[in-house]
Design a protein around this nucleic acid. Structure first.
Lengths: 337, 337
DNA sequence: AATTATGCAACAATCGATTGCATTGCGTGT
DNA sequence: ACACGCAATGCAATCGATTGTTGCATAATT
């Protein structure tokens, strides 16, 4: 094996080059303290032996990690799998934005039953900061940690009196937009699909109610507290369609995943969309543009959301105490309404 | 600030407890070398001060990283974004399987232009092993690294003479399954949507050709080399449908993402599925069950695939020289055919 | 009482790199 | 010829933990 001559660390390389380890370190960092000739010779040897200094040792010494922890707290919603499209889309954008800044992305297990789940990552010393995708029902824990641990940002709602820095869209306004649009389309009978146990969903529902109240339609709303997974949403919606005699003609879904399930259930019941029923989703995930019919939805711009999260995080890493950001939701009108 | 009394390392804690750092280390590891009384006292102090030992320092000493690098080499397919549903689904399963084993997942930037993209991660010292999601056009690089770096596994094709360990489905067989199914459904005129520049796609196409040849329909195949992103696939398919006078009645899509685009394009051209045209996808991503109509597809069981990848990787980490795994593809019949 | 055994904790080397400070060697000014 | 300055490199402490070895009491044995 070539394991014999393998250069495993800076000291091996130093021996090979006939210099001290310190010199090698500086040479590889291209420090001007080392003569150009020596520097290039050492770099050449390093290249020949395919040597790359150990990142962990380096990080330990200079006290930075070069990685950002990304956590998805699932809380009570145990059914919600990590491969949910929403999380994954957000994760993709974060990966892009972080690697753009030369940081890696460390995805860690989340055990929200243990109150230390967040501390464990924050204090592990292997991340320079933490991004949470969603707050779940862990607001108390998050705020406690945020009070002492600066480099922490979360995607989600921005509630009054909140300690931690968050980025999210104005859910109330989003719910309002969706509902007003349906009213304009002539709907007079509404249904909201989504479980208001999550604060974000509750806000969307509230926006929906505000819009209906403003139009004098406050009593025309039915609520189906469907869970956010496609697997549970479809049967619930299907059963509901079967049982309900007078079906609504305007459906507000709490997420695109739920909306997609609704579209399918409606198709199976031979209900024309948007002919008989208008449907609006929430999120504008990539597939919203690929459904049949394509989905009208309230866009949460996850790309700029991710960009904000990363930007705020790095400002916090350098000590700044940033404020939360609330993004404007935007109605994207497609075929389903 | 409470930064004054904050316990930042094992030495601080040792001072507080009036013992040596080594004793603290052993106490926190619950070593029986330390008297039970002392051990519990130290653990109590650690708990009070919310102290958790620095993972990086620990890893440096015991020479393990506690993390697995997960890379997505995109190669030439620059358009293919990291948030592609296929990658994300796989990533979700991997995250679950890895955290199950107490390892974190390090998602790193992939620059396939630099021939050292893989070495950089493998030799960084911050991962115990590497999982590649896909091989792209980097077979040469992957095999070179695999020859000397054992803990490396890849999702993808299993080609003859391949050095590295891979897990993937039998693409040829999958293509065959899909095509035979369409033949049984009465199709006589076929189209394959997908770019055979990727080895996996090429194998699927070959399987398709074999099935057609066996049925004496070898000359009834049109190929539309659509790229694998939804954004590029839809217009291409749409244009193709416009231009082609005699449309096929059996469509084999190289992936579910392409199939979904095809479904939409067909719907917009008022072509009934499965009435006039039968469509089969590939992958069985979660959304395949949510399309309208739901998608018949060749299932690659990504959950067991991920489980295999992780299992093989850990066996390689402990020195075993594992062989590749080829999974049986399975036809999942739904509404689109 | 002297000796051996045993339990507990301290000491110090180590993982692999970084970096402030000390040292060496060479050229130059006087 | 001597001192001085500066450039180039070596030395050694450091980051924060782990762990083999050693030392010191106290308990058990003869």
């Amino acid at each position: 094996m070539d394991n014999q001559g393998r250069v495993r660390n800076i000291t091996d390389l130093a021996r090979l080059a006939g210099v001290s380890p310190g010199t090698v370190s500086r040479a590889l960092a291209d420090s001007h303290l080392i003569a150009k000739k020596t520097r290039e010779r050492i770099q050449e040897i390093a290249r020949e032996h395919d040597f790359r200094p150990n990142v962990m040792a380096r990080n330990l010494r200079i006290k930075r990690a070069g990685a950002i922890g990304v956590l998805i707290p699932l809380g009570h919603e145990t059914g919600q799998h990590i491969s949910d499209p929403f999380f994954m889309t957000m994760l993709g954008h974060l990966a892009d934005a972080l690697t753009e800044r030369g940081h890696d992305l460390l995805l860690s297990r989340v055990i929200p039953t243990d109150p230390h789940w967040l501390n464990r990552v924050a204090d592990s010393g292997r991340v320079d900061g933490v991004i949470l995708i969603g707050q779940s029902d862990q607001l108390a824990v998050i705020d406690t940690v945020a009070a002492r641990y600066l480099p922490l940002v979360a995607w989600g709602a921005n509630l009054a009196g909140q300690v931690h820095c968050s980025v999210g869209s104005d859910n109330r306004k989003g719910g309002e937009l969706a509902t007003r649009h349906l009213i304009e389309r002539g709907c007079r009978n509404f249904a909201f699909f989504g479980d208001p146990i999550a604060p974000e969903i509750a806000e969307r529902l509230e926006g929906c109610r505000m819009a209906l109240a403003a139009a004098g339609l406050a009593d025309k709303l039915a609520i189906l507290p469907a869970h956010l997974t496609a697997e549970t949403a479809h049967p619930a919606i299907s059963k509901w369609l079967d049982e309900t005699g007078s079906s609504p003609n305007g459906i507000i879904a709490a997420s695109d995943v739920v909306a997609m399930s609704a579209l399918r259930a409606l198709a199976e019941h031979n209900v024309a969309v948007p002919g008989e029923v208008h449907v609006v989703g929430y999120d504008d995930l990539p597939f919203a543009n690929q459904t049949v019919p394509t989905l009208t939805t309230v866009k949460q711009d996850l790309a700029t959301g991710a960009a904000h999260l990363v930007d705020l995080l790095f400002r916090r890493i350098s000590g700044e105490k940033t404020a939360s950001v609330v993004l404007e939701p935007e109605l994207v009108i497609r075929q389903s309404s």
